[in-house]
């Protein structure tokens, strides 16, 4: 098996591939069109004489900041919240050394939760193949354990 097992759709028509690429390129062009004023500003700023606006007027930074400031406040508060939790949970998140584990789920307790006795559930776990039956309410009624050869 080739790994990673990517499926690149080799049987897909080249026309469909070309259509997807052209459509996506057009989507980028649309974004560029929506941003045409910003792109013009950037172009003007970066061409000779570099780092000067010659044909475009510089953006009104105060106005832009005024629009985004309320949202920036929320962003700052949430990032501080994340930083707080990253400090609280830092050790836990970085932990790689083994530690004492919680007690395993006891077979008897697992069986009792589904109205089975311990021996029956132990039998389930020995079986290579199991056929499970249900009652009308969707509860397990009984199960038949089989070996691989029996099933064949």
């Amino acid at each position: 098996m080739i790994w990673p097992p990517l499926i690149q759709g080799t049987r897909l028509s080249p026309w469909l591939r070309a259509r997807d690429i052209v459509l996506t390129a057009l989507a980028w062009v649309q974004l560029g069109y929506l941003m045409r004023e910003t792109l013009h500003l950037v172009h003007d700023y970066l061409r000779y004489p570099i780092f000067e606006f010659t044909s475009a007027s510089p953006p009104d930074w105060a106005e832009l900041w005024g629009r985004l400031r309320p949202f920036a406040g929320f962003v700052a508060a949430l990032v501080l919240w994340l930083l707080f939790w990253s400090l609280v949970r830092g050790r836990q998140m970085r932990a790689t050394a083994p530690m004492p584990q919680p007690a395993l789920l006891a077979l008897a307790s697992h069986a009792a939760g589904f109205g089975l006795d311990e021996a029956a559930l132990a039998g389930w776990r020995e079986a290579r193949i199991l056929l499970v039956h249900f009652d009308a309410k969707g509860r397990v009624s009984h199960a038949e354990a089989m070996s691989v050869d029996q099933r064949a």
Binding site: A127, I129, L131, V132, A152
Partner: peptide
Amino acid sequence: DDLARRMPQVRVVHLAQ
């Protein structure tokens, strides 16, 4: 079932419904 025969780590549970 066939995979269970071929691979010792495989166990199969068939739900009747």
